[in-house]
Design a protein around this nucleic acid. Sequence first.
DNA 1: CCTGAAGGTGAGCAAGCGCTTAGGCAAGTG
DNA 2: CACTTGCCTAAGCGCTTGCTCACCTTCAGG
Lengths: 212, 212
Amino acid sequence: MGAAKETLGEEQPWAEVSPDAARRLLIAAVDAFAERGYHATTTRDIAGRAGMSPAALYIHYKTKEELLHRISRLGHDKALAILRSAADGEGTAADRLSAAVRSFVRWHAGHHTTARVVQYELDALSAEHRTEIVALRRLSDAAVREIINDGVRAGEFDVPDVPGTTLAVLSLCIDVARWFDVGGRRTPDEVGALYADLVLRMVGAAPERAQR
Amino acid sequence: MGAAKETLGEEQPWAEVSPDAARRLLIAAVDAFAERGYHATTTRDIAGRAGMSPAALYIHYKTKEELLHRISRLGHDKALAILRSAADGEGTAADRLSAAVRSFVRWHAGHHTTARVVQYELDALSAEHRTEIVALRRLSDAAVREIINDGVRAGEFDVPDVPGTTLAVLSLCIDVARWFDVGGRRTPDEVGALYADLVLRMVGAAPERAQR
DNA sequence: CCTGAAGGTGAGCAAGCGCTTAGGCAAGTG
DNA sequence: CACTTGCCTAAGCGCTTGCTCACCTTCAGG
């Protein structure tokens, strides 16, 4: 399915950020924020990682917070696109929920530095930027809730508390960014598969392999 | 002061911290760290919330990091005690897993300010303190894994990947501290009940509709 | 009464912070 | 050529940070 867009998964991250110096600064900021947190990161550190002087940062970004906002915005856009692509796909609700969780988790594990900044540094955003981002998060919530509602309507799922289960599913996936370790034994693909199975259990979908 | 009654009939939190001024400072630090994060909190802010001058902090604590360490240590001790109390209880593995999740989640929701600091400010600890805390976390992991293993051995659970599922269960519970909102519609008890049900589904325990 | 310990304060230091400014250099355009 | 434009740096400004220090107050024991 979607053979023409097959290569999009391998695209260069942050390709939409230009010019080159701005992208280098943004990547350096992602690394630094993920490693130490936004407030513990200095603008000198970011510029240093990008191989530039501290003042260079302010040519491409108005403030340190604008850098965080750009990262958060792009990351949330990407995360939402992943969820929607799965939600709008073909197949049963179980198929779509499984695909959504698998790809969402794979992204959080594979891009865990970015995801960590995106998911855990919201408080550092300005009030306006935060409300903008929170709106995006509600759309993610709606995408997942829609799949679950479809499954319930179709009789595939058994979910007593749809909003609560939606919250739990998203929370479970998001928290992958906190604990995922590149040096660990699990690959992003493996975690995605494990989590897809766990989530299908949470919604009471009939197990595919054997009935019990 | 403003922080509502978190005790739920239990004893006064932080009762083990003395003298009184040290406890007031610690409670102020918990509030400030939870609200703004460790690095964004100033020692002046902590002292101010406790109604004291900035210098007073250093009579009771050597550094700002020692304050965080004390909070983190006490919080992890409490969380581990909750898990172990449920793990060592009576009943089937499903009963014990359900009880563990319910009380663990209830604590994370009811004491979400403390839990937020405990779970999300580990990186701000010094290297030595962090390894001490990480050891405690491994014990929590072991407590949950033991219950799940018991259930698998007894034929109560169907869990293909025990370490992975253990990780997911703990991750799910911990993340409650991130999103729980006092102003929200759910009480800590309700979230605990919902999550206990979800976790039983994750381990493939036979649904006990009568049980709640 | 005096004395010393315990617990507090006001003032402030050295370091580090986010961010600004003045200016340099290379490339493109009339 | 002169001039603008884009990108970058060295220097540093004004402020805040974690933390210290000289000093004050309270109070129990002799």
